[in-house]
Amino acid sequence: MGKILVTGATGNVGRHVATRLAKAGLEVRALARDSERAQLPVETVRGDLTSPETLEPALDGVESVFLLWPGPSTEGAAGTITAIAKHARRVVYLSADVEDLADDREPAYFHQEVERLIRHSGAGWTFLRPGGFAANTLMWADQIGQGVVRWPFGQAARSLIHEKDIAAVAVHVLTSAGHNGAKYVLTGPEQLTQAEQVRVIGEVLGREVRWEELPVDEAREQLLAAWGDPSFVDLALQGWEAFVTRPERVTDTVERLLGRPALTFRRWAEDRAADFS
């Protein structure tokens, strides 16, 4: 098996992908904007996905690429994917559940454009389409420490997935045959409302944490201060609101591919408990 390039290798998913591949004894190279600070157990090369001209050293000798696009802008994507296709025979792209989000419930539209570019690049491809990331609940860490989470749409139900499961599926796809042209929708094994997610985190931490519904207008002000982009904020709020009446779907894809059930949200909270302290 040829060399595998892992992009987004300093993030929640990419770090697990690079580490798993290295432990399997495979030839791995990681791409990072700051290769000296990445602190990864594999060869790390400096490069920026949004600047295709910086990628040649990282792509040299590469057969497969695990691609995580640093959205939401697709600036530079066409040139980058063209460069990747000149070297690599296959691309495993960490996308989003774009078909389920066709009504723009969430700001995942850039994934659709990146997928289109990959499909027309000439390289073989597999799309991993996870739903909500369990790690996104870390945004509540400070509030959980205070014993109450004030946030909108407490009854929004999601099937959050552990980043370790996404990475395990990515490694399986990168290292086995039969996945070309596949679009795998990945979720956790259960639906939990946001209020239930907070309760589970509190139970794992051994403390009582309650949910308090935050008016949408107040939430929008907070998100605008944090994110700055009004359209991005509004799409996110619309997404959470939609999950109240149309919960995020649950799939068995992780179990079918890995031969074991997807990890629960409680397991994720146990693995990440230190991040809430």
Rank of each mutant, 00 (worst) to 15 (best):
R119I: 00
L59W: 01
E115V: 10
R119Y: 11
H87L: 07
A108R: 03
L94W: 01
R116T: 11
F110P: 02
T54I: 07
R90D: 05
A96Y: 07
A102I: 02
R105I: 06
G71Q: 06
H111G: 03
A96D: 15
V98G: 00
L49Y: 01
A96P: 04
P52D: 03
T50P: 00
E115G: 08
V91F: 14
Q112A: 08
R89D: 04
Y93M: 01
P57L: 13
L67Y: 09
R105P: 00
V114H: 14
Y109S: 04
A96I: 09
E53S: 04
L59K: 14
L49Q: 04
I81C: 08
A88L: 08
A96G: 03
E63K: 12
R116F: 11
A83L: 12
D104P: 12
P52Y: 01
K86M: 08
I118G: 01
P107V: 15
S51D: 14
D104M: 13
D100E: 06
H87A: 08
A58W: 01
D103T: 07
L68I: 06
V92R: 10
V114F: 02
D100R: 02
V92H: 12
E106M: 14
P107T: 13
L101G: 12
T82Y: 02
L59S: 06
E99D: 07
R89S: 07
D60C: 05
E99P: 06
V98C: 01
D60V: 09
T80Y: 05
R90I: 00
H111T: 13
S64Y: 08
L67P: 14
Y109E: 01
G47V: 00
F110L: 12
A88M: 07
D97K: 00
G71F: 12
L94C: 10
T54C: 14
K86I: 05
G76W: 09
Q112P: 05
K86D: 10
T50E: 04
V92Y: 14
Y93V: 15
T74V: 07
Q112K: 09
A58E: 01
T80G: 12
R89V: 01
G79M: 12
L117K: 05
A85R: 00
F66V: 12
P107S: 10
S95P: 15
E115K: 05
Y93E: 03
I81T: 10
D48P: 15
Q112R: 12
G79N: 03
A108G: 11
T74K: 02
V114Y: 09
A78I: 00
V62Q: 08
R105F: 00
G47P: 03
G61A: 05
A88P: 15
D104E: 03
H111L: 02
D103E: 12
A88W: 14
